[in-house]
Nucleic acid binder design. Structure first.
Length: 287
DNA sequence: ATCCAGGAGGGCC
DNA sequence: GGCCCTCATGGA
């Protein structure tokens, strides 16, 4: 009764583990080595990779084309992106060669917005836990892989009914009123995804920061991971340390780093950021 | 135990 | 503008 498995062979510049574990996504569960359960856009995917062939379990070709190929950004030429970055900056080579299989996911705007509001002053495992709790309590049940149950992230409409107390029960702490504000502003179209996609990065940054608890860093994450603005360059504590270590050899302000990154990486800022973030964090650069 | 985590708001100067 | 404190919670 399954749709059958869909297998993609000969994929380049893609590693499912690296792509999911690099810190851009909080809604997945590792099943085994190179094998994951992933939730996105109200669907559950069971995926596994063996070298350059990727198995999408119980997935039709149509669903792959419509949903997962886009989600994993598989129709983009990363070899060209890497070459362009390297042409200007050979320092990226080691990070890029190590994290060669990272692709930037095209995730849902609303889920990314709420997830990165949650992310402030928290470690990645705990962010994942809170996203899972909110999904379990307020999202739709999507199925299970083994004993693990998966739930979709609730829509904005559904979250409009949630109270501050409900959110605090999900361990969101001082972020609860921030989430309430985001839900309300997306709900009444003060924040409109369609418009945000059309405007340039500076206007987008301003609009996103109308939400309480959303500053420059979270806005840049939302633009990069949820609005496909790949020039965005989020600067968090890690990227700050890594950039200081690799390019400044001294302390540098976030503004200074942002200006440098724009000049150095340009339209590929988001890709550079992701390779550097993941590599630097794994190697504990600058710590 | 104290410190810190993919930050941001608010008060102060 | 910059600097400092605080926010709720859990892991090292």
């Amino acid at each position: 009764m399954g749709k059958g498995d869909f297998v993609v062979k000969g994929v380049a510049d893609f590693d499912v583990g690296q792509t999911l574990e690099c810190g851009q996504c909080f809604h997945f569960k590792k099943i085994d080595e190179n094998e994951y359960g992933v939730v996105a856009f109200g669907k559950l995917l069971h995926i596994r990779q063996d070298d350059n062939s990727v198995i999408f379990y119980d997935t039709s070709e149509a669903e792959y084309e419509e949903v997962w190929k886009k989600y994993f950004d598989l129709d983009r030429n990363y070899a060209q992106i890497k070459a362009s970055l390297l042409e200007k900056d050979s320092k990226l080579k080691q990070a890029m060669d190590t994290m060669w299989g990272v692709r930037i996911l095209k995730q849902d705007f609303f889920e990314i917005l709420i997830s990165f509001i949650i992310s402030q002053n928290k470690q990645i495992p705990h962010i994942k836990q809170i996203v899972a709790t909110i999904s379990r309590k307020y999202g739709d049940y999507l199925g299970k892989i083994g004993e693990e149950e998966f739930f979709g992230f609730p829509s904005c409409e559904k979250m409009l009914d949630i109270t501050l107390e409900d959110l605090k029960e999900c361990k969101t702490g001082f972020r609860a009123p921030y989430i309430m504000d985001a839900v309300s502003k997306v709900g009444d179209k003060t924040i409109d995804e369609k418009i945000l996609r059309e405007v340039d990065i500076h206007v987008c940054l301003e609009k996103l920061q109308l939400i309480k608890g959303v500053g420059e860093k979270i806005s840049n994450c939302v633009m990069l991971f949820g609005l496909e603005k790949r020039e965005a360059f989020p600067i968090d504590v890690w990227i700050k340390r890594i950039m200081e270590f690799m390019y400044f050899d001294r302390e540098a302000s976030k503004d200074e780093i942002a200006t440098f990154a724009k000049e150095q990486f340009g339209e590929y800022g988001g890709y550079a950021q992701q390779y550097l973030f993941y590599y630097g964090r794994e190697k504990k650069l600058g710590k």
